[in-house]
């Protein structure tokens, strides 16, 4: 079964032979049934390896990780923003600094929201159409989402903020605009995904909470982006 070509069948399979060697091996394969059989087996093994599925641990490892990173209580850990800024300051490229700035502002908004959570109503909305940071944006705290005026207020707030951003985008640095747009696209994708999941399981507390959190994140990002526009006007 083994000949001078057997040891090179993996390279052949992986496309790593030179054209000359490849041609010679293919010529050999036409007359060597044994090498052909080995090659077929190797193909099956590679295909099986590619098809292996992810393997989850038998137990949830998050509690141990959370304890080691200082988040064992299950609540949002205290965030040292000064430390976070300093860490980014030394570690990120210019485009990433722009992203970090937006993210940190988003985080600030989210932190404010976390520190002053809305009542556990289905959807709690504040005044619509805030045009700058610090104005009352709807706070989303959903345990069981229902369509209604709060959703409309949220949509109106998002729409107004998007208009502010659109009108002022020419005054922002192009890198910042790209970062904002990329993050908004990501958040929109996450919202759509959550909404699709909720369509199949509308009672899921996790999904409702995740959707609310994601919607809140979009609102925060838009609000801070609008504030950026205002600051350069």
């Amino acid at each position: 079964m083994s000949d001078q070509w057997t040891g090179r069948l993996s390279e052949y399979l992986d496309g790593e032979l030179s054209p000359e060697d490849r041609g010679a091996l293919e010529s050999h394969l036409r007359g060597c049934v044994a090498c052909g059989a080995v090659l077929a087996d190797l193909k099956r093994i590679v295909a099986r390896a590619r098809g292996l599925e992810d393997r989850l641990p038998e137990r949830d490892l998050w509690p141990g990780i959370a304890a080691r990173i200082g988040a064992s209580s299950g609540e949002t850990p205290a965030i040292d923003l000064a430390r976070a800024r300093a860490r980014r300051r030394w570690s990120f490229s210019l485009p990433q600094l722009a992203a970090a700035a937006v993210a940190l502002m988003t985080l600030s908004g989210a932190t404010v929201w976390l520190l002053h959570p809305a009542p556990p109503a289905a959807v709690v909305a504040g005044p619509a159409a805030p045009a700058s940071a610090g104005s009352g944006a709807p706070a989303i705290a959903v345990s069981s989402r229902r369509p209604g005026s709060a959703d409309q207020s949220y949509a109106a707030a998002v729409s107004d903020l998007e208009r502010v951003l659109e009108q002022g985008r020419g005054r922002l640095d192009s890198t910042t605009v790209r970062v904002i747009e990329r993050n908004l696209a990501t958040i929109d994708s996450a919202i759509a995904q959550a909404q699709r999941a909720l369509a199949a399981d509308s009672a899921s507390v996790y999904l409702n909470s995740h959707l609310a959190e994601t919607m809140q994140r979009k609102l925060d990002l838009l609000r801070q982006a609008a504030a950026l526009v205002s600051s350069v006007s």
């Binding site: 949002t76 850990p77 923003l81 993210a103 993050n183 996450a190």
Partner: peptide
């Protein structure tokens, strides 16, 4: 677009919830 970009940025800022989402 990296679907994890937002959570990675938030986690780098100290958001353990974002990091848990990345973990899962």
């Amino acid at each position: 677009t990296d679907p994890d970009a937002v959570d990675a940025t938030l986690a780098a800022s100290g958001d353990a919830h974002a990091f848990e989402r990345l973990y899962r």
